[in-house]
């Protein structure tokens, strides 16, 4: 049992890229700015139909929490786990999980890089792990 994202036309490119091992965010073809999560139009210059750019997949931990009580039966075996907000090198922030270290070793500002976890045949979630 896994908790997986439902997809819309707006969000599908993000998850399809993740399945191919790429982390992407939206980018405005007119003004060049990037943001996340996806929007139907650029929030800065209002141009419709934003494109997507691949990002480096690096960033730092902006804030985090170690969850020790599950809020869903599907998460009961995942306890304890880390929810983090990672600030990407390119600027936008993503909600993610931290893997590849003890839950007690996560620190604010810690450099991290993306790692991809296939949850089902269809869905891959980007997680982040400490840069060695």
């Amino acid at each position: 049992m896994a908790i997986i994202p439902g997809m819309t036309d707006l969000t599908r490119p993000y998850w399809e890229a993740a399945r191919e091992g790429r982390l992407v965010v939206q980018q405005c073809p007119a003004c060049g700015r990037s943001w996340h999560p996806p929007l139907p139009a650029c929030p800065h210059c209002h141009r419709a139909g934003p494109g997507w750019r691949e990002v480096a997949g690096t960033g730092t931990v902006y804030t985090y929490t170690v969850v020790r009580h599950p809020t869903h039966v599907a998460l009961a075996d995942a306890i304890p786990y880390v929810i983090a907000i990672v600030e990407l090198t390119e600027g936008p922030r993503v909600v993610t999980g931290i893997t590849g270290c003890d839950v007690g070793d996560v620190r604010a500002g810690m450099p991290v890089r993306v790692t991809f976890s296939a949850v089902t045949g269809e869905v891959t979630l980007p997680y982040f792990e400490p840069v060695a």
């Binding site: 049992m1 896994a2 908790i3 997986i4 994202p5 439902g6 997809m7 819309t8 707006l10 969000t11 999560p37 869903h72 599907a74 993503v94 909600v95 949850v119 089902t120 869905v123 979630l125």
Partner: peptide, 15 residues
Amino acid sequence: DVVVAEEDNRSFAWP
């Protein structure tokens, strides 16, 4: 599997 319908970006958080 639990499929999280997208609403106010929750499909990017609940998973």
